[in-house]
Simulated scan of single mutants.
Amino acid sequence: MTLDEVSALLEKIKRIQGKLGSLDGDGFEWNLTHDVYGYQEYSVEGVKKPEELQDEIENGFIWLWSLKDYVRKFSLSHGKNPNWIERQIDNLESLSLCADIANSLKHGGLDRKPRSGKNPILSQVSYEMQQDSISKLSFYARRVEFVVSDPSKVKVSLDIIDNDNNKLGNAFTLINECLVEWENLIEQAQA
C-alpha cells in the first residue's frame, strides 16, 4: 500500500466531510397530527433533507473506518507489527467509537462486544432554524411553510448516543477528530 493510495481515500473522506458543511438543498415536507391542532403539514424550502444529511454522515463513518485497512497495509509496508494499528485504535476513543458506529451501520448492529465499550449509535438529524435564516414564514389553516434563504445560519445536530440515550458526543465533531487521528497514524506509520 502506497502513501498515494492512502491519501486518495483520505481525500474522498474529506470530500464527504465537505458536503456535511453545506445544508443547501431543495427542502422537505412532513406532517403531524397534534392533540390540540389536529392534522398539520409542514414544509421547509432551501435546505437539504435530513435523510440526505444522515446518509452523508453515515457514509463518512463507514469510509473513515474503511481507512483502517489501508493504514494497516501501509504500516506493514513500513515494518510495523501487524497488530500495531489495532493497539493504536484501541487507545483512541474517537476511532473506537467510529469503529463501533461504522460496524453497526454495515452489519445492522454490533455482532460482538463494542470496541469502545459504549454501544454508540447515531441519533436523528435535527435542524434549528434561526430567525435570520428564514426569509418567509407562512401559516395556513393546516400548513406551515418555511423558506430558508441562508442555510449557513441553520443549526444542525446529530448526537452520538448509547443504548440508554446518554449523549456520547456529536457526529460532526467525531468525524473531524477521526480524520485528524488517521492523519497522525499515517505519519506515525512512516516513522
Rank of each mutant, 00 (worst) to 15 (best):
E93Q: 10
G21S: 14
V148H: 02
D35N: 13
S135C: 10
N170G: 02
W63G: 00
I160A: 00
G117M: 07
F74E: 01
R142T: 08
N59L: 12
E187C: 02
A171G: 06
K106V: 03
I121W: 03
Y37K: 08
S77A: 09
D26P: 04
L158M: 13
G46A: 02
N91T: 12
G169Y: 04
D150H: 13
L53W: 07
N163K: 15
I175T: 01
D55K: 15
E56G: 01
K136D: 10
K155Y: 08
L92A: 04
I13H: 12
V71P: 01
Q188P: 04
V71F: 05
D100Y: 06
I121H: 01
L179M: 12
K19V: 03
N166E: 03
D69W: 12
D24I: 10
W182Q: 02
Q17A: 09
K68S: 07
G109S: 04
A8Y: 14
E181V: 07
S123M: 06
V47P: 01
Y42L: 08
K19M: 10
K167G: 03
S123Q: 15
Y42V: 02
A171F: 05
R72C: 01
K80N: 10
I62G: 03
I57H: 05
S22N: 15
K106H: 04
P82C: 01
S138M: 11
R87Y: 07
G38H: 11
E45H: 12
I121A: 04
G18D: 05
V147A: 10
G38R: 12
L32S: 11
G27I: 05
K167V: 14
S157I: 07
N165M: 12
Q188E: 13
I175E: 00
